[in-house]
Design a protein around this nucleic acid. Structure first.
Lengths: 158, 158
DNA sequence: TATTGTTATACTCTATAACTATA
DNA sequence: TATAGTTATAGAGTATAACAATA
């Protein structure tokens, strides 16, 4: 069977020990699943990410969003445009600095997020099905250290 | 500072415990670094991946490549076109099934791969700098289990 | 002079559908 | 009829550059 040949070839190639390659392979599949799950909520992973952050307690500007999503400010514009025209977030001029726009989720946005969050959790269960609970926890810990750094890593919480 | 606000907001959002989100964030950065490292070798991560596999001992068809890179066969066509016109791989008609093309690295392709592999290793060191050796090993183990499954995972080797 | 948001553009990646040649 | 490879196309993501309003 071709698929057996494929797996064999991959397992014997240099890529089998390339963390970046394996990660991209695993998580592009994860993104695909997540995008399908979000489709019925009118979102994709990127717009979901923006919505999730604006649903938090800390007020954020578009510049803030660009920074930690590691996207160019111009990309944030279209994401916020999209969410705003759907009535999920609104832009507010920052009185302290009238160049800045603080982006906040509306009531409707928070409701949408709550529903979409369930879809994301389900997608994650699917894409991480081969890992047990302890392994997922460890994977989460390693990723947090990668993203937030050794010190800044927020505690895992409850 | 805005960047502190950004990290704080992210750490307090629902995304801080979303494995897929954190993984995508961590490894799109990794891909960016890897692409820059490969630039001087005339490759990108996707063409590097194809080249890496065709440098392995197991002969692979384009269909095989599509399968384990999780790309559409039509995307493989342009990747192989690109590598072939650079003289790094060549297509051979499979005598057993003349529909299939076996893709093999040329001598030049293997040399290029050897050089590029060093660049990839360097990029990986950079993108995983916050993890120590044991953590990288564990991350690799978890990713292999995700990609190859619990049984098919090739042994980590030396 | 520097920064926030915006518009514009080009290139890469992702996702499908249809076609050809072989089986 | 089914499969391997190919061509074509449209939409999403990535990367830059330039501009207006504000600091």
């Amino acid at each position: 069977m071709a698929s057996e040949t494929a797996t064999t070839a991959l397992a014997h190639s240099a890529l089998a020990t390339d963390i970046d390659f394996l990660a991209v392979k695993a998580f592009t599949t994860g993104t695909r699943i997540a995008n399908r799950s979000l489709e019925s909520h009118g979102l994709r992973v990127r717009s979901y990410s923006v919505l999730a952050i604006t649903c938090g307690e800390v007020p954020v500007t578009q510049r803030d969003l660009a920074e930690f999503l590691a996207l160019d400010p111009s990309q944030i514009v279209s994401l916020v445009d999209e969410l705003e025209s759907a009535g999920l977030v609104k832009r507010e001029v920052d009185p302290a600095d009238r160049r800045s726009r603080v982006v906040r989720a509306t009531k409707r946005g928070r409701d949408r997020f709550a529903a979409a969050r369930g879809a994301i959790a389900e997608a994650e269960r699917e894409s991480l099905a081969t890992l047990d609970g302890a392994e997922r926890a460890e994977l989460l810990r390693l990723l947090r250290k990668l993203v937030f750094g050794p010190e800044d890593a927020p505690s895992a919480g409850t």
